[in-house]
Design a binder for these strands. Structure first.
Lengths: 168, 168
DNA sequence: ACGAACTTTCAAAAAGTTTTGAAAGTTTAG
DNA sequence: CTAAACTTTCAAAACTTTTTGAAAGTTCGT
């Protein structure tokens, strides 16, 4: 297989998988492209390679930066900005976990906590509050677990955790 | 607060959070409604309460069943089909994990495995294959970890795993 | 201060997804 | 077998998200 072919296959597939999660195609493809490029790329480079507009590149590159998995790189003597993806896949995953926890889990916990403590006097109110409390407790456990994972180092993940998981 | 109000708040919020993940609003709302209803509901009940069409209810209830978190319940002497959500939140979460692993992780691993083993002779081909191999190894670890979690019981999750994570 | 080289913005267009509702299909009671 | 009571399907409409590209904004070298 040609290298270019393989890279394009990876980029296309990454884009398609991205949409299955809540990530838009271009964003996932830019990420994939930056992953396989060893040199940082400019907005123009990305536009050409993925065949998308300047606005689209700008928007999605910025979004990838808010996720903390793509960084701006300034080349000496060049006016343009270049972008490069975090190449350590473990760091990338942890970064994504961290952001999703913050954006998607924490707000749910706030809602649930509020509803579990609500002052509801009617028939059935206790059952409802119990359900909210259960979902909340489960969410809080998950939250704690993710927090630990995010704060641990790579060795811990592939080493201790895997060993713990494999035994029994 | 009125019970009805609190329930509606939960259903609306669940729907909004759903869209942040890759889940459509109606599907998330139906799930929330079935969670807070202690009696199973018919398609007509759901239509009325959420104000959505029959087709929409049918489609999304079926999708929830393919996720294994909503079940058909037949009431004695009734012609209609009723639906009920798994109320154990731990079981629900495991079920979702299981399905996402199958739908979203396994296909990625297949792609990566193929690319990591591809026969690429050009300059730079080794680096590319190395990257694919690294992502693949990370994915395989995650896959194994999820598999353990899915096969374990609730006590293990809230008990041993949490204890392991909390120490050191 | 000027203009070239760049980045950002945003309204409109395109694309993608969800929802509707009426028609077709199925099941059951009598 | 027939009709009523239901469920399923699917093309078209509504809605949402993404993308475009031109205009506005910014930065930098001279």
């Amino acid at each position: 297989m040609k290298l270019i072919e393989a890279q394009e296959k990876f980029i296309a597939a990454w884009g398609a998988f991205g949409t299955q999660w809540g990530i838009n195609r271009t964003m996932a493809q830019i990420h994939a492209l930056l992953l396989v490029s060893d040199e940082p790329l400019s907005a123009d480079d990305i536009m050409k390679q993925l065949n998308v507009s300047r606005g689209n590149v700008n928007m999605n590159v910025r979004e990838l930066m808010t996720w903390g998995i793509v960084h701006k790189v300034l080349k000496f003597g060049e006016r343009k900005e270049f972008f490069s993806a975090e190449k350590d896949i473990y760091k990338t995953a942890i970064q994504i976990l961290k952001e999703r926890r913050k954006r998607e889990l924490v707000p749910v916990l706030e809602l649930l906590g509020g509803l579990a403590d609500a002052d509801i006097k009617e028939e059935g109110g206790e059952d409802f509050k119990k359900l909210m409390g259960e979902i909340n407790r489960f969410g809080e456990s998950t939250n704690k677990m993710l927090d630990k994972m995010v704060k641990a180092d790579e060795h811990w993940f592939t080493g201790s955790l895997m060993k713990f998981l494999v035994k029994k």
